[in-house]
Design a protein around this nucleic acid. Sequence first.
RNA 1: GCCCCCUUCGUCUAGUGGUUAGGACGCAAGAUUUUCAUUCUUGAAACAGGAGUUCGAUUCUCCUAGGGGGUGCCA
Length: 478
Amino acid sequence: MTKKAITRFAPSPTGFLHIGGARTALFNWLYARRNGGKMLLRIEDTDRARSTTEAIDAILDGMKWLGLDWDGEVVYQHQRADRHTEIARQLLAEGKAYYCYCSPEELTKMREKARAEGRAPGYDGTWRDRDPSTAPDNVKPVVRFRAPDEGETVIRDHVQGDVRFANRDLDDLILLRSDGTPTYMLSVIVDDHDMGITHIIRGDDHLTNAARQSQIYAALGWQPPEFAHIPLIHGPDGAKLSKRHGALGVEAYRAMGYLPEALRNYLVRLGWSHGDDEIISTKQMIEWFDLDHIGRSAARFDFKKLENLNGHYIRHGDDRELISAIKVSLHEFESCEDLAESLDEEDWRKFELAMPGLKERAKTLVELVNNARYLFVKRPLSFDKKARKLLGKEDARHVLERLTPVLENIEEWSVEALEQSVRDFSQETDIALGKIAQPLRAALTGGAVSPGIFDVLFVLGKKETLARIADVGKNDEL
RNA sequence: GCCCCCUUCGUCUAGUGGUUAGGACGCAAGAUUUUCAUUCUUGAAACAGGAGUUCGAUUCUCCUAGGGGGUGCCA
């Protein structure tokens, strides 16, 4: 029996969970779930100055919202610093690491010089074999890894294939800073090893690190995990994702009215495929996900496609679940603050009742909520330009007058009965249905666009419907 | 500069040493329709360029161009 996969998602808490991170988390999650394994969560906060608790909260919150749950407790990397330094000392004792007394200024000069001469701009090994007794005593040293200087390091990557690096291009990286704290490069290795990680699935930007890390694994005599470096996500213009395009935190997508399942579906198709399948449920993702079908080129973020997928999941969503999703985030929807404050039990009941008609015509939850406004407005309604135009016509108002008794006489206020009666009225009076429905829509919703008119009638109820129609008759400004 | 990676419709992608190069989003046209949507039908739209290997390359190799990543006492 093969060992169960243990993956990890290891964000650094310097900002929110952006879309690229979310996809990395999703891939790790899917791979673990697919293989009956575990996905661990580790916060890479070794850079204390840049790590914030707000960022940690945002990341955890984002993952929960996306439905990506992790196994076990969250590991905070900086809390394991002692263990990391212990390994650094071991390397030092074995001669696989050494003290370096170069000042930051010297290093900068070194880099500039190398660059000017067209060489690889790494550390030149000044202290690699130098006698520590010649060290200046006013300088606190860093600890550097003694990397092999010849031969090559090859990474067998599940996405990128075999990638070869000449060892002379990889310099002696810093393990321990001059203040004694461990760097990311040391910490990841120790933690991944100690946590029993079997597969590292992370962004392409770590590919070079993988080579450096595998050298350290070798020095330690540890077996490196399997690697899968996934391509980055770019903005619509092909440049690195920035705040201008899609590099928003996942909570921003929630605030824009996207559903987590839509985002998951969109994200999984960005770089990974399963034949021609586009609409993929989470259950299917877990069944199908593999490393072999991850593409090697960067993908651009396309809001239009996300929107389309979101519309699909809204249309096919369960009414009650959609209501819950709206309840959770209504307060953060743009221009919906008023509703977040004012909706009462009865409003929510009507909202759910109207959902079948509403969900057919919204690509985001925000759009859906705004389309539902006619349900909550208080009489007398105000009318938009198109509604005014519709109701401004003499004969349109006349139609409403003639329709009123018909509606008054309806006993059973159901969509079917309503439709039957209005259609009969249309036949008898020889007035086209459109000539009835449009003024009616304007009178009842204040606009020219809405769900099916019989839905509107039904959800509003007899009393409110009649009252809104009557309001139009009394309105002199139309 | 140096190292590494990538390149199929506008976008996400499938695919194969011989295919009318497939799907999806978007776009266009049409049908349905009480508005808007939905739904359905149809259409336009791609193998970056150049060599080579081969009977035959989109597919394999090399080069060029373009794009991306790395190059920190950041992660």
